[in-house]
């Protein structure tokens, strides 16, 4: 195995593109090294992107935030600007693992690991975040939901790297939230996760909504039916009931060691309702 820590994005892309064996990007490493320990992942090349300029920075852009691929959870949690605009996204990232994991784990890594249960992904999907991908043919931007194509699978081509994640400008009178269910209070993988983002008009009627579920399908689900039942309402109890029902109906989970189908479907609705209430309070300011 080779370890490389290039100082430019171009070099990183060239290294990854040129490797004939198994090549992996190392940002926080909190998934990669676990895979290596178990023997599940046996890289021929590891490209550490943390010595590349810009990978550690959070910058304002078009009223939104561009977050470097190597920004760890703890750094984002310390960023008052991002926290104020997208508290749900920051909270989702901060839920991943322990304080120690937070010192290393990145949102880009969480996304590219492509676990259906990744905490930050439903929150980013709800926030309508996009991803900037650098590759041998230049760079491109795609919506977050288009990155993971299945458990452990991404749409990234050989040689491509997530360079940054962009959280758009937060609309006025909007709020987001992410909740997950785990058996303990910390240290678990989400059994169900739900991100909600919504926008109100001056009268308090919901004009836009985005609801995403994690851990209930092979990839994160964008639940359009759930958004539809919120829009045009005051996000009252009836709307929340409809939201919960839509989420429970949309969830297509499996039985596994972390939860059952029945449990995940029901809790999808429970969490959606609870997350929507938080998002609503935030939208109201």
């Amino acid at each position: 195995m080779r370890y490389e820590a290039p100082s430019t994005l171009e070099n990183a892309v060239a290294l990854l593109a040129g490797e004939s064996g198994s090549a992996h990007v190392l940002a926080g490493g909190t998934d990669l090294l676990v895979g290596m320990k178990s023997g599940f992942t046996e890289p021929d090349l590891i490209v550490d992107i943390k010595r590349i300029d810009g990978m550690h920075t959070v910058t304002q852009e078009d009223g939104g935030w561009r977050i470097g691929a190597a920004v760890p959870g703890i750094q984002l949690g310390e960023h008052d600007g991002v926290k104020a605009d997208w508290p749900g996204v920051v909270e989702a990232l901060e839920l991943i693992g322990s304080t120690q994991i937070q010192g290393r784990a990145t949102m880009a890594g969480n996304l590219c690991n492509a676990s259906p249960a990744a905490d930050s992904v439903p929150a980013m999907v709800a926030a309508d975040a996009t991803v900037r991908i650098a590759g041998p043919n230049g760079s491109r931007d795609i919506p977050v939901i288009e990155v993971a194509t299945g458990p452990g699978q991404t749409s990234l081509a050989k040689g491509e790297i997530v360079e940054s994640i962009f959280l758009p400008a937060r609309p006025v009178r909007s709020g987001d939230a992410y909740l997950r269910f785990i058996p303990r209070t910390e240290m678990d993988i989400a059994v169900v996760g739900c991100g909600v983002s919504l926008t109100l008009d001056e009268g308090g009627t919901c004009t836009a909504a985005c609801v995403a579920l994690g851990a209930v399908a092979a990839t994160v689900l964008l639940v359009e039916d759930a958004a539809r039942v919120l829009i045009g309402t005051a996000v009252d109890d009836a709307a929340l009931d409809a939201l919960a029902a839509a989420c429970s109906a949309a969830a297509k989970p499996i039985d596994d060691k972390r939860g059952t189908v029945a449990f995940r479907k029901k809790v999808s609705g429970v969490l959606a309702r609870r997350a929507a209430k938080i998002a609503l309070e935030r939208a109201k300011g």
Partner: peptide, 25 residues
């Protein structure tokens, strides 16, 4: 695997699991 914290160290002031970091880093 980063689940127990017995290997905790700080790197540049950040608390991390030393089992989840390459020595080369």
């Amino acid at each position: 695997t980063g689940d127990c914290g017995a290997c905790s160290v700080t790197v540049n002031g950040r608390l991390v699991c030393s089992c989840l970091m390459l020595a080369a880093e």
